[in-house]
Design a binder for these strands. Structure first.
Lengths: 108, 108
DNA sequence: TCATTATTTCGATAATAGTAGTAATACCGA
DNA sequence: TCGGTATTACTACTATTATCGAAATAATGA
């Protein structure tokens, strides 16, 4: 059971991880790619990011729980954690308009 | 027409704006509040954030396009820009698994 | 005009994040 | 084991962001 404050912090960390053009591009590339994962080298080549910089970004996204990695030989495949991503986007809309005048939900 | 790169930058800015516990709390409070808006003073009191700090956070959220403000007397009401928020959350899922093996969409 | 309340701007400091070269490590095929 | 490729760790430097007190601005009503 995570406290409400902890949920805020965790989701803020995930959003912060996405709040950078390179990392957002990485996530989208991985989300749009094969569900089995995309090797780091492909990301480096396609997104044109130096390997060391890319590694930091991947680490940050994985630490936030948005990416999972799996080693296969020399390749490391990264794939999106769709459940976490869904939880994050749902979180933003949670209890929308709950405290509105008539409890109305005309907004969402 | 915004270029793909510009879309990435704009959405990254929005996500970065949400990537902070205080600002995420602000957005959620506003999203869950009355669609007409929530005065800054209420946010300050409920979320216990110093006025000047709050003002900076509100400015950042508004600059990113996630909040809109409206003055009424001495009060300034902030409300969520639901269309922008929807566009943002949809963006993360856009073309999910498009490049997957069988064009499968088992993941989303 | 004056006092009061609501909110923002200024300004300075402290803390965090981004970048990328180089070195190190891991794996595989020969 | 050796050589090549893939990937990460170390490191240092720079840039951006967070914080908040104090001063300034805006609106209202007496």
């Amino acid at each position: 059971m995570t406290s409400p404050a902890q949920r805020i912090r965790d989701h803020a960390e995930q959003l912060g991880a996405l709040g950078h053009a390179a990392r957002l591009s990485i996530l989208r590339y991985v989300v749009q790619g094969d569900p089995e994962g995309t090797p780091a080298g492909e990301l480096q080549a396609k997104l044109d990011i130096p390997a060391s910089t890319l590694s930091h970004h991947l680490d940050r996204l994985a630490s936030a729980g948005l990416l999972q990695s799996r080693r296969e030989g020399t390749f490391i495949y990264y794939r999106a954690d769709f459940a976490q991503l869904r939880a994050l986007t749902d979180f933003l809309w949670e209890d929308c308009c709950k405290r509105g005048k008539g409890g109305g939900d005309a907004c969402c």
